[in-house]
């Protein structure tokens, strides 16, 4: 007995330091790769910081220039929000429809689940090449198919009016991740609910709006937030598929920041741009959360919901 109690005290002694040893890797990583850079980026945003010569302190000059003298800043914001306004609802709708389809009690649904998820594992580089070839205005298969049904396809990547839609279509190809999140959520809804509703005479449509949708509102909220954040930061596909063109019609905000930093070498100015986006993302998330209380129904997991992770793209 004495032996046990001795061990107890010794492990309690270790206990105080041990948990911190376990999380130490993350703490170091957080300081060195997240917090440090975050603070440094804020400091840089108050400097004129060319890559070649010494940085000079300019106060809020970068922010002033951004808001008052840089038309591209506003243009890029408008394009980015336009993209988000088209992409987010479309993506959510497709993800939800697909999830509903593959949860139907029919044969072969696993096969379709695999097919729908498949593009989500493909690199942005490959996606841009694959869709670039399909959209190609000279040899593209898409416009050929459209011509078969009597539609004259637009010059997808060359026409400033249409280029943004190529990004939407290519981005939506990776909808599988969101579909899977909806799918597992819908699968988790107790079947008794549907059975009871069916006995009461509710048809599939009624069941969908009265049972399915209310049950998955927390997941919808989560998916809205992650896809808004994702849409606002879209960079890889733009860089690869359109390069911001034609006529800067797809010069998204992410590309604007990237080019200011690595092409025009205005590191201070680009930092100010980035911090502006950071604040926009924070505010947007807060607004979505605040308004969510009117349409999100929690059963018993009020706290857990907010902690859900976001998949890295």
């Amino acid at each position: 007995m004495q032996n046990i109690s001795k061990k107890r005290t010794s492990y309690q002694l270790i206990n105080k330091k041990v948990p911190y040893l376990f999380i130490l890797p993350w703490i170091i990583g957080f300081l060195v790769f997240t917090l440090g850079p975050l603070i440094f980026s804020l400091i840089m945003s108050f400097f004129n910081w060319p890559i070649t010569s010494e940085p000079t302190f300019v106060g809020i000059e970068n922010y002033k220039t951004m808001f008052t003298q840089d038309p591209q800043f506003y243009k890029s914001i408008i394009i980015t929000f336009k993209f988000a306004a088209i992409f987010v609802p479309l993506n959510l709708a497709i993800a939800l429809i697909l999830a509903l389809l593959i949860t139907q009690p029919l044969k072969g649904m696993k096969f379709f689940r695999t097919i729908f998820y498949l593009p989500a594992v493909v690199s942005g580089v490959a996606i841009s090449i694959i869709w670039g070839w399909i959209f190609n205005s000279e040899y593209g298969i898409l416009n050929y198919i459209l011509s078969l049904i009597g539609v004259e396809g637009p010059m997808w990547l060359v026409d400033p009016k249409w280029a943004i839609f190529t990004i939407v279509i290519a981005s939506a190809w990776g909808v599988g991740i969101m579909m899977l999140i909806f799918y597992t959520n819908i699968k988790g809804i107790p079947t008794e609910l549907y059975e009871a509703a069916a006995i009461d005479g509710a048809g599939p449509l009624r069941q969908f709006f009265s049972i399915t949708i209310p049950s998955i509102t927390p997941t919808i909220l989560f998916n809205v937030i992650t896809s808004v954040i994702g849409a606002l930061q879209q960079l890889a596909l733009v860089l690869l598929l359109t390069g911001g063109g034609p006529l800067k019609s797809t010069y998204f905000y992410g590309l604007y920041v990237y080019n200011n930093a690595f092409k025009h070498h205005q590191l201070g100015y680009a930092s100010a741009n980035a911090w502006f986006m950071f604040i926009v993302v924070l505010l947007l998330t807060m607004v979505i959360f605040k308004t969510s209380s009117t349409w999100v129904f929690y059963e018993n997991e009020v706290k857990k919901e907010g902690k859900k992770g976001r998949r890295k793209k």
């Binding site: 997240t34 440090g36 850079p37 440094f40 930061q233 998330t285």
Partner: peptide, 24 residues
Amino acid sequence: ALFILMLATMMIPWDVTMIPLYME
């Protein structure tokens, strides 16, 4: 507090840390 902090880092836009990380 640390756990919530960790989850919050997932919201930081990539552009914000991109430049200082490059310099680091």
